[in-house]
Amino acid sequence: MAPYIIAIINQKGGAGKTTLAMNLAAGLTLRAKTIVIDLDPQGSSLQWAAMGTNAFSTPVEAVSGDWNAYGLRLKYKIYQYIVLDCPPSLDSHTSAQALLACDIALIPVLPSPIDLWASIKLSQEIEKTKKDNPDIHSYLVINQLEPNSALSNAMNEALKEFDIPVLQAMIRRRAAYRSAALEGISVYQMKGNGKRAVEEIEAIINEAIPL
């Protein structure tokens, strides 16, 4: 079966792409053979996987040069899921290719005005991509939610402007996500401390990813 490609994308820096990519991949690894491709020159996913003493649950590799969807699927055909950790820029070969290659684009957004303003152009890019990748699915994933903040509560109305559906499953701001990166593990490997975070990632997988 051809790999199912999941692009974690948002041109806004710090939206949670790497955090979502690494933990989502860890959750998918429990189900099927999965790899993370670090498309970001910052190399955060690679660095995350290299932290700590235990191996990360999922292989993480980088691609470079003039890659495309065909080459990616061919090279990684033994994997069922390929998770693309995209750079914080739409203005690159990489991001354009990621949108063309993917079956689904997950777009983490923070409940903050500046993040919403910076992210809105992405919904227009995804519309354009549909010419060449008509089957692409896309969802916004609210990250670093603070359920009691007025701004978080005001988000839902504003997100309707994106023309992209919002996943019901959301990610709260939790220390576990940061500790996991520091230890070079996913929240799945954190035992008790990662329990709620695992539930969030599982909810995203169950809602958005075909198994």
Binding site: G13, G14, D40, P41, Q42, G43, S44, L46, Q47, A50, E61, A62, V63, S64, G65, D66, W67, N68, A69, Y70, G71, L72, L74, K75, Y76, P87, P88, S89, D91, S92, Q97, L100, D132
Partner: peptide
Amino acid sequence: TKTRPTAVKKNTKQKTVSANSVKES
């Protein structure tokens, strides 16, 4: 997507930051 399907390479080293396009989180 017409370009060659090549140049997918393994790289385990941390890469450098491209100053132009990448914002530091």
